[in-house]
Amino acid sequence: MPNSKLANPEKSPPNNSEMSNGESNDVSNETLLGLWLDDDLNEKQRQEFEQRCISDLSFSQQVETANVLNMQANSYQDSAVPNWDRAASFTQTEKPKWWQWQGLPSLSLAMSVFAVVMVLTGVNIKVKDGAMAVSLSNQTNMQEIDRLVASKLAEYTNHQQQVLNEYALSMQQQQLDTSTQLTEYLLTASRQERREDFAELIKYVNEQRSDDQNFYARQLNKLQQDIYATPEPLSVGNIK
């Protein structure tokens, strides 16, 4: 709303420190009127203003016109705004969706190129204990392979050594078992043979004894027969 103080210039409070050097007489009508309209007159300027309103007809007419204008501005009835397309002034384009982002094809291409470069150059990305290392050198890669091969070979050697040891132990145990079994077999077989040999010997001896007994029996029988067949007195010379 327009400033109502303008309608009564004499009551305008002095609140300006500007041009307070006692040279208000040098202030032009335009400046003085401007200061009054801005409600920015100091005491001396206000006195000068009032003095000019009395003594300077053209200046007082200017002040009067300003007052009239101010009153008209105060009583001015604002016209209603007709309907208009307010939304048309919102010229910002709608934010594109993330998949409609202009940079997506470029990003896609860049990622593809990056992937190709990675494949061709043999980039090696290692993430270990929260640290990431990217290597581009094949030499490093070969060293890594050598290290891995050596590690695997050592592991394989250890494994083979272990298997070999187990195999050797197993063979040793088996050999021991076999030797034991052979010994037992030999002992058993030897015992059996000796038993059989003794049995044969005993049988032979028994047969010999039996033969001997038969022989002696027959001799005795013969003797008996001879004794009984010849009635000659038995003498020692008759015995053959």
Binding site: E30, L33, G34, Q61, E64, T65, L69
Partner: peptide
Amino acid sequence: SVNTAKSRLYVALDKLKILM
């Protein structure tokens, strides 16, 4: 400038006085 603005208003008030 401020002075130009004040001068323009001063002249305008002169004309408006006559016109009104």
